[in-house]
């Protein structure tokens, strides 16, 4: 194990996968000569050249479609969409083609693409650069959606996504690229399904993914130290398909659940996890599940207002105390 930053872990996965297979290539805006907005592709252009590290025009739907077409020949593109807000433009190709072509061709074609895109609310980026879009992608059959919460996952999920024959969307967070964490020194492929117990506990389950795992972990510490409540934190790194079994297992142990998401509540991860709990283990519950979500508004520019609409660890702590009637 060695410590590295989130962006370094991604860059290492690129480097290894492109070295391993000459048919892996990457594309995106500013990823080559400029080295990538968040440095995830730093040094690759110099090492692998312009044919395999392609600076694209600002044509998200076009270059995503181009990547999908290339993947029909088992050439494997890793497509970076600079901001998840721009990925809306590529939804046509991702949803209408990549997610459906294996099915509608009766299994004849596969679209083994990887699309990585950073999103979330950073600092005062305004309404059109602060989207949290995971809910949209996880609702589409035929697409895998994963989201790393630490450098180890960022590395291992990208490695598996490149080799997996399905189209995989990787949702990253703009605030997390400089986060440090342990990454195995040897090659490591992270599963694209399942969930992880980020912190074991017996009193309540906190479900988080991506940045909200960290809010859950902070809240769990406060709850343990100040209130004697031991929260289990489940990291839902796989958003589609969601880990039904893992969700049921934890709730059956703790009998209480809080789901924490950075996105607006409607039709989101919280709603989906609650539905799974309802369908699979309703009678295990000692209290109604609760979700902690963003306010249902576009993200404001003003920093005080911006902070007020996005949840944090204190909101998670407060929600848990409420579940316990405190």
């Amino acid at each position: 194990m060695s410590k590295m930053m989130f962006w370094e872990a991604i860059q290492r996965a690129y480097d290894e996968e492109m070295t391993n297979d000459s048919l892996v290539f990457c594309m995106g805006e500013d990823i080559g000569v400029a080295g990538g907005t968040y440095k995830a592709t730093k040094g690759l252009y110099e090492k692998f050249g312009s044919e395999r590290v392609m600076d694209t025009p600002i044509s998200e739907n076009g270059f995503t479609g181009l990547g999908i077409g290339a993947s029909f020949l088992n050439v494997r593109p890793i497509i970076e969409i600079m901001s998840v807000n721009f990925s809306w433009l590529a939804m046509d190709q991702m949803f209408n083609t990549a997610a459906k072509v294996h099915f509608m061709s009766g299994g004849q074609l596969k679209a083994p693409i990887v699309v990585r895109s950073p999103g979330g609310t950073a600092h005062q980026l305004g309404a059109q650069h602060s989207a949290r879009m995971e809910k949209v992608f996880m609702g589409i059959a035929g697409l895998r959606v994963v989201t790393p919460s630490n450098p180890r996952q960022a590395y291992g999920l990208l490695k598996s996504a490149v080799r997996c024959d399905d189209p995989v969307f990787i949702y990253e967070h703009e605030l997390m690229y400089n986060m440090q964490g342990e990454v195995p020194d040897t090659e490591y492929f992270h599963p694209l399904i399942g969930s992880e117990i980020a912190r074991p506990g017996g009193d309540i389950t906190l479900f988080g993914y991506n940045i909200s795992v960290h809010w859950c972990l902070q809240a769990a510490e406060t709850l343990s130290k100040q209130h004697g409540i031991e929260a289990e934190v489940i990291d839902l790194y796989a958003l589609s398909p969601l880990d039904r079994e893992g969700i049921v297992q934890s709730v059956s142990k703790t009998h209480r659940a809080v789901i924490v998401e950075e996105a607006e509540p409607a039709v989101g991860v919280g709603a989906e996890v609650m539905a799974i709990i309802n369908e699979e283990c309703f009678y295990e519950l000692d209290a109604p599940p609760v979700r902690v979500s963003a306010a249902n508004v576009p993200i404001p520019y003003n920093h005080t207002l911006e902070k007020s609409v996005i949840p944090n660890a204190q909101d998670v702590t407060a929600a848990v105390l409420k579940v316990f009637g405190q």
Binding site: L23, L66, I68, G69, F72, L73, V75, Q93
Partner: peptide, 13 residues
């Protein structure tokens, strides 16, 4: 774009 991508695949191979 799919056609351009198939052509990109041909080029890489």
């Amino acid at each position: 774009p799919l056609a351009a991508g198939i052509a990109k695949g041909i080029q890489m191979k």
